[in-house]
Computed example of a mutant assay.
Amino acid sequence: MPINIFVKLISALALCIFLSSCSDDRHTSIRLAHHLDTQHPVHKSLVHMDEVLQKLSGGTMELVIYPSAQVGTEREVLELLQIGSMGMTKVSASSLEAFVPQMKVFSLPYLFDNHAHYWKTLESDIGQDLLDAGTPFLIKGLGYFDAGSRSFYTTKQKVETPDDLAGLKIRVMSSQTAVDMVNTMGGAATPVSWGELYTSLQQGIVGGAENNPPSFYYSKHYEVSKYYLLDEHTSIPDVIVIGTKVWDRLTAQEQGWLSQAMHEATEYQKVLWAESTAMSLEKVKEAGVEVMVADKTLFQDSVSPIYKSLEGTILEPLVESIKSMGEE
C-alpha cells in the first residue's frame, strides 16, 4: 500500500465513527469528507444537512465535515467508506462508474431535454435504483446534488462548433464515456487530475477543459482560460454516499433522520446552485472571459455515433426509459 494512502487510512481510522451503545445517551457522529472548497455551494449544503440532522435528532446525531481533500481524493475516500473508516462523502456520478456501470448514463451527452427532465429522472424510480445499485460494493447513495451542466472552456483557441475542437487537447475526468464524447466530437480527450488542471492549462499541456460555471469560477481556471462556450453537453449529478457498514450500524430512526436531512439538503442546494451559477458567470465575464452560447444542434449531431454504439448494451434500455420521461 502506498505510504500516502496508508497515512490517510491511519488518520481516517483515528476519526472513525463512534456509536455509543448506551440506550439513553447514544450519540452518533458521522465523518464526511469531500474535496471541495468551503465556499462551494455543495459544502454549504452539507453544512445545512448537518444542521437539519441535529435538529431532527434532538442533538443526538451530527455530521463532522472534512472539506478541501483533507482526507484524500474521491477514490481514496470511497475506499475508506468501503472499510467503514469514513462515513460519507460527495462524489460525481462519474466516479461511481467503476462500481455501478449504469452510472455511465449520466456521462452521455445531451441525454436530458432540460433541467426539469434532469430532476424528474433523478427523483424517479430510475434515480433511486441507481442510488441503491452500489450496495454490493459497500456504498449506498443517499441522494443527489445539482452539479449543473458541463461546458467547454479553452485558453487560446476559441471553440464555437465541433469543428473547432479538431485536434485540441481537452481535459476530461477519468471516465471512458467522457473520453469517447470529446473524441467523437473531434477533440483529443486528455484525462488530468483536478488538482493538476490549473497548471496544465497554464503550461499548455491541455488547451482546454469542461466543467460547470461554479467549478470554472471557484477553481480560478478563468484566470488562464479566456473562452467559455455554454454548450452544456452533459449534466452529471453529484451523489452523496454513505458506506453500508456505517449505514447498517444506524437504527431505523437514525436512518430516517439522515434520509430526511438529505432530502432537505437537496432542496436547499438546488437554490444555492442556481444562485452560484448566475454569480459565477457574471464574475468570469468581469474577469475578461468571453462567454458564448453554443448552437447545441451541431454538437448533438456530432455525438450521434455514441448512441448508436449503445445498441445491445445495458445502457440502451436505461437511455430509452430516461428519454421517454422527457417526452411525457
Rank of each mutant, 00 (worst) to 15 (best):
L165H: 01
T244H: 10
I83D: 14
L46A: 07
V172W: 04
V179D: 09
C16Y: 12
D248F: 10
I242F: 03
A209L: 04
D180E: 14
S259A: 15
R75A: 13
M173D: 12
V172R: 01
D163S: 12
P191H: 11
W194D: 15
K220A: 15
D24G: 06
K156G: 12
T251M: 08
V91T: 00
E320N: 14
V192N: 02
K245Y: 10
E267W: 07
L56A: 09
H35A: 13
L250Y: 07
I242C: 03
V7W: 12
Y144N: 03
K226S: 04
T121Y: 01
E286F: 00
K120E: 14
I126M: 10
V246R: 05
K245I: 09
K169H: 12
Q157T: 15
I83F: 10
F216I: 00
P41G: 09
V42D: 05
K220W: 13
D164S: 00
V192L: 07
Y118A: 03
I314M: 15
E316W: 06
A69N: 13
I170F: 01
I17Q: 14
L318K: 07
E123T: 12
L165V: 05
S68Q: 14
K220V: 04
F145L: 15
L315P: 04
S11A: 13
Y144G: 05
T161H: 11
H221L: 10
D37Y: 09
M88E: 02
V47S: 08
L298W: 08
L142T: 04
V303G: 09
Q54V: 10
P109D: 02
L15H: 12
S324D: 12
G243Y: 02
D231V: 09
S174I: 11
L80T: 03
P214C: 03
N211H: 09
E328A: 11
H233W: 02
S85Y: 04
Q269G: 05
Y198N: 06
Q102Y: 09
G84S: 13
L80P: 03
H233N: 10
L230E: 01
S29K: 11
S324V: 02
L36T: 03
M49Y: 03
V239I: 06
E286H: 05
A209D: 13
Y198F: 15
I3D: 13
K245S: 11
V172C: 02
L63H: 08
S94M: 05
N114R: 08
T244K: 11
L96I: 02
V47A: 10
D146P: 08
L318G: 07
I236R: 03
A69D: 13
T161K: 12
V291E: 04
T199R: 15
I242T: 02
Y144D: 02
Y110S: 04
N183I: 05
K283N: 11
L53Y: 09
E264H: 08
P317C: 10
V239W: 01
V182C: 09
S57L: 10
G207F: 02
T154M: 07
A14V: 11
T161R: 14
T251H: 07
V246I: 15
